[in-house]
């Protein structure tokens, strides 16, 4: 002891840091990553590798040479964007398309707004939607590449996502589809949609580690279930049922990992509930009446833009007021 430190209270600090929170999100994504690599093989590894590497590298280059500020890649947030972007793409996406997605996600959606904490839109979703509009053929090519294990389960539906089938042929097109398969190994779609169980494991981990609060995710699920439930009860021949809607089209991936992004979701619990209801509603409107078979990405982006208003309207309950 040479000189004593003097500072205002409090004198203790939590061990939780931005870095540890972000690392926890990456850990929560691991089950989904492992499943996607096992079933989509080398091509998925390539998509993941290119996506994560380019996101981290781009953030490094932009912070270092363009903004000339502190380098922020150590906080793991660029890794999350990379993993999420990869899981939102078909495993067959060419590497240069993945790279363009990363450029848009990090370069445009994140860093132009000022980096972590300042971006209005979720970078990974912004990247995905940019690619979906720019390269629709690559983004809807659901040919299943050779994985490290298994092939049989997915053969029957290769070539289209369940929601894609519905979009073309109505609810009857997926009649008899096995929900147990979807729960553990979904059929065709983005890499991250493969296994609902893997995503749910991640959700439980995030809740247990107190990384996220459950309100946003649960209100999305509830809205989708209620909305589709009503339509399905009225006309089961035309409209798909609630469970189908919950398990397909990236709804779990979006509601667990992307709608709950700190920066682009409301601060208060009630704001989060309204945010979630909005995402659920917009998703179902797009699915039932829109041109795209799924709609989670668009729904999240649209609701992202409402977050500043929700933060203004909804505040925490204050003591004695």
């Amino acid at each position: 002891m040479e000189k004593l430190l003097v500072s205002p209270s409090p004198h203790l600090h939590t061990k939780t840091s931005t870095k540890s929170l972000m690392r926890d999100v990456v850990i929560a994504l691991l089950p989904a990553v492992v499943v996607s690599v096992l079933f989509y093989g080398w091509s998925e590894l390539l998509v993941l590798g290119v996506s994560v590497a380019s996101c981290v590298l781009l953030e490094y280059l932009i912070t270092k040479y363009l903004l000339k500020g502190t380098c922020t890649i150590g906080d793991w947030s660029a890794v999350i964007t990379g993993v999420l972007l990869a899981l939102n793409l078909p495993a067959t996406t060419p590497w240069w398309v993945v790279f363009i997605g990363a450029v848009f996600a990090i370069g445009v959606a994140k860093m132009t707004f000022g980096g972590l904490g300042q971006n209005l839109f979720n970078p990974a979703i912004a990247g995905r939607v940019f690619l979906l509009i720019s390269f629709p053929t690559y983004m809807t090519d659901w040919t299943k590449p050779q994985g490290f294990i298994g092939n049989a389960v997915t053969d029957a539906y290769t070539g289209a996502t369940p929601l894609g089938l519905v979009s073309e042929g109505g609810a009857g097109a997926v009649e008899g589809m096995d929900y147990m398969n979807m729960l553990f190994l979904n059929i065709g779609g983005s890499a991250g949609e493969l296994s609902a169980v893997a995503l749910l494991v991640g959700f439980v981990y995030l809740l247990a580690r107190k990384v996220i609060r459950p309100y946003i995710t649960l209100s999305i699920w509830a809205t989708v279930a209620v909305f589709s439930g009503i339509f399905w009860l009225i006309n089961p021949a035309e409209f798909t049922d609630p469970l189908f809607n919950l398990l397909t089209g990236g709804l779990l991936l979006g509601s667990i990992f992307m709608a709950t992004d700190y920066v682009t979701s409301p601060m208060s619990n009630w704001g989060g509930v309204v945010f979630g209801v909005g995402i659920g509603l917009i998703t179902m409107l797009i699915r039932y009446f829109g041109a795209y078979p799924e709609g989670v990405s668009f729904a999240i982006l649209i609701m992202n833009s409402v977050v500043p208003l929700l933060n203004k309207w909804f505040h925490t309950k204050k003591y004695g007021r």
């Binding site: 430190l5 500072s7 004198h11 203790l12 600090h13 939780t16 840091s17 931005t18 929170l21 922020t72 906080d75 947030s77 980096g115 972590l116 904490g117 300042q118 609060r213 700190y262 920066v263 601060m267 208060s268």
Partner: peptide
């Protein structure tokens, strides 16, 4: 135990 970490951007976690 007590030295504070370097301040970084608010990530709006609401904690």
């Amino acid at each position: 135990q007590t030295v504070r970490g370097v301040e970084s951007a608010c990530i709006r976690c609401g904690k």
